Amino acid sequence: MAAQLEQMYQCLEQRQTQLKEEVAMRTAALEHERQNLATIIENVGDGILSLDSCGYIELANEAAALFLEQPKNELMGSRIEECCPKWSQLYHHTHTNQRFELKMAHRTLLVNVTPESVMGESHSCLVLVRDVSEERQLVDHRRELDRQMFQMEKMATMGELAMGLAHEIGNPLAGINICWQDSASIPKLWADPYQLKQVLLNVMINAILMMQNGGNITIGICIAGNCQSLIPENECYVRFCIRDSGPGIAPNILPRIFNPFFTTRENGSGLGLAVVKKIIDQHNANIQVDSQLGQGTRFEFTWPVASKWQLTHPNEITKPNLPLCQKRCLIVND
């Protein structure tokens, strides 16, 4: 009996020794992994923060301290609002991931917040911070280049219109002043660019021919309708207004100006405004004319803006005469 007990005791001691060795090995492996993870967290380019349920910073790496412009030892244990006053405005305590931009004094940060829940209750969250300042600067620079290119294309189109007017009416526009007015940035239209330019050209030619002694033409463009999101139901469109200081159109003539071959000029063809009306109708646009004798004439037409679906599926449109107006230079705002 004593021998059996001694043997069992030795077995237990051996097993205990084996367990201690296994625990020591696993502890060393876990410590090695912890050190590797700590090294990765500390040297990764993105900022990493761990917040408890009350918003206190439990962990922060060097990148986070750099981005938040605070010494690392001061970040630890402090509330996130102390280094990010706008945090409470941007972050909402929910159980879903959140992503937003944070503007610092010298940086633009992209912040990703991943909440951790215990038993359905918010416990803590992991915050990843990336410096996107250079990316945003590149985007702004590209936007400025696009704006300058748009201005150059627009001025080129103005020159094309002026030359087209001079060619059509056979004079250098002497005594005619053309003024361009704008509202806001004009979105892309759902239009044939050449037909849209033809509409502008024909209306302006008509105005110039009516002002034999010179005068003024004002072209205005603005956005109208509900343009919060470019979907067909929102009826977003651009309004063009061409106003002249000519003699005006008599009330009995006004209803007939779009009729083919109708003209009040001796050598007129009566097709210019008829073409305008046809193009307007083909594009599901609308045109109105207001004129008073001695006070000039105002042509106003509204043109539909390309929807998001039309912008992303230009090759799936079945209407052959309504391509996307890619030539933004045709939008003559200033």
Rank of each mutant, 00 (worst) to 15 (best):
D140F: 11
V23F: 06
L90T: 00
M8L: 04
L90H: 00
A174M: 12
E58L: 11
Q10M: 06
A306V: 14
L128N: 10
A156W: 03
V111R: 00
E62L: 10
Q326W: 10
A38T: 06
T264L: 14
Q148I: 07
R99M: 13
I280E: 03
F261T: 15
N112E: 15
G272S: 12
N259T: 15
M210L: 03
S53G: 13
Y56P: 02
A65Q: 06
F299T: 06
L49C: 01
S53V: 00
R107A: 05
C54D: 12
E116C: 12
T263N: 11
K103N: 06
I257C: 06
M8Q: 03
D131H: 04
L189P: 00
I57M: 07
N216H: 12
R130P: 05
P71W: 05
N61W: 01
L165Q: 07
I80D: 01
Q89N: 14
N206S: 11
R243V: 01
Q181A: 04
I317V: 12
L128D: 13
I48E: 04
P172M: 08
L189F: 05
K308C: 14
A3R: 13
G268T: 14
Q137V: 07
L75P: 03
S88V: 06
G220A: 05
H106L: 07
P193F: 08
F240L: 10
A250W: 11
F261R: 15
D281L: 13
S269I: 14
M152I: 05
E6D: 09
N202A: 07
T263R: 09
W303Y: 13
P232M: 06
A60K: 04
N97I: 13
E121A: 10
